[in-house]
């Protein structure tokens, strides 16, 4: 070993910009892809404009929040198959309580629903920690429970919400190019996730997902981190349910089911490692928009919009299979 060994093992020091690009390459790529989709949509559909952007933002809002919820669970090494059921529960709770209420009361109810979502998520997390049953099984079982409770609250689609509350998601903010739905999304993610991510508690979520043993040795309370991650997941899921109430104006006990799987698809497409510890919120949000715009484009192209689901599933499968192929080749080399 030569005396220059210490310098030899030192990693090359990339510039700040280069590193930012390399580290966020997937996110940047996804936003470019989203931009390309928007341009493509404009190309195939001349009149695509501010109104359609607004429609897109409204359509994507519940999925984006479902993706945010799933991300919170997945970065800490878990997965939550009850996101859709929780969204449905929040949706029907809000719609049945808000019917014929004033806007002010509706806001209070919304806060209540968010708290309920966080508590339900905390219960999911506590069950994972206490029973030591794999996250998948616990949340699968809990998806029945929350789905059942949702049916109990509102057996059939119904309920309602004051128009002012619905207007939170529709309409535009300041200019016609900034839909309210986008503002709601940015606010909820920006107010919940980004402050958390900066704290030691937020870091501990990533730490537990990345390497639970090393996290424990670094003094992290692993059980607490797990429960917090599911609590945040429940909170976002409840926000997604409220978004469903805003965008549809009613409550439907089965509306959420679609979002469990699509949320996972958005997370996978968003480059969040299902093994935990890696990934942020920005990319899954872009993925949610992309997954929403695809059926729209198919409609414009005259194809059956039902291919949208095929494409969602295929994207999810292909992304994870490609990731598997890459790691396979790396380990084989």
């Amino acid at each position: 070993m030569s005396s220059s060994a210490a310098t030899a093992i030192r990693p090359a020091q990339p510039g700040a910009l280069e590193r930012a690009v390399r580290r966020n390459g997937w996110t940047i790529g996804l936003y470019l892809l989203l931009l390309a989709f928007l341009l493509f949509t404009k190309l195939i559909h001349e009149s695509f404009g501010a109104f359609d952007i607004e429609t897109l933002a409204i359509g994507a809002l519940p999925l984006a929040l479902a993706a945010a919820a799933q991300t919170a669970a997945v970065v800490a090494g878990g997965i939550d198959l009850s996101v859709g059921a929780l969204m449905a529960l929040a949706n029907v709770l809000a719609a049945s309580l808000m019917l014929n209420q004033s806007f002010g009361t509706a806001l209070g109810i919304a806060a209540l629903v968010l708290i309920m979502g966080a508590l339900a998520g905390a219960l999911n997390g506590a069950l994972v920690v206490a029973t030591k049953v794999p996250d998948i099984v616990v949340t699968l079982a809990m998806s029945f429970v929350w789905g059942g409770v949702a049916l109990l609250v509102l057996p059939h689609p119904g309920g309602g919400a004051p128009p002012e509350f619905q207007a939170l998601a529709s309409g535009r903010f300041l200019t016609e190019w900034v839909p309210n739905a986008l503002v709601v999304l940015v606010l909820s993610v920006g107010l919940i996730w980004y402050p958390l991510q900066r704290t030691r508690l937020g870091l501990s979520l990533y730490a537990v997902g990345s390497d639970a043993l090393a996290a424990f040795r670094s003094g992290v309370d692993v059980a607490r981190a797990k429960i917090v991650s599911y609590t945040v997941c429940g909170l976002f899921a409840a926000a997604g349910g409220l978004a469903l109430t805003m965008t549809t104006g009613i409550g439907s006990p089965l509306a959420g089911t679609y979002y469990t799987l699509s949320g996972v698809a958005a997370v996978v497409l968003g480059g969040v490692s299902l093994a935990g510890g890696r990934g942020g919120m920005l990319a899954p949000l872009a993925a949610a928009y992309i997954l929403t715009i695809i059926p729209t484009d198919l409609l414009f192209l005259g194809a059956d919009p039902n291919f949208g689901q095929v494409i969602q599933g295929a994207i999810m499968v292909l992304v994870v299979m490609a990731a598997g192929l890459i790691s396979l080749r790396r380990s084989g080399a």
């Binding site: 870091l203 730490a207 997902g209 990345s210 090393a214 670094s218």
Partner: peptide, 8 residues
């Protein structure tokens, strides 16, 4: 074994 969290 290194104790740093690999993904942070």
């Amino acid at each position: 074994e290194p104790a740093l969290i690999p993904d942070l």
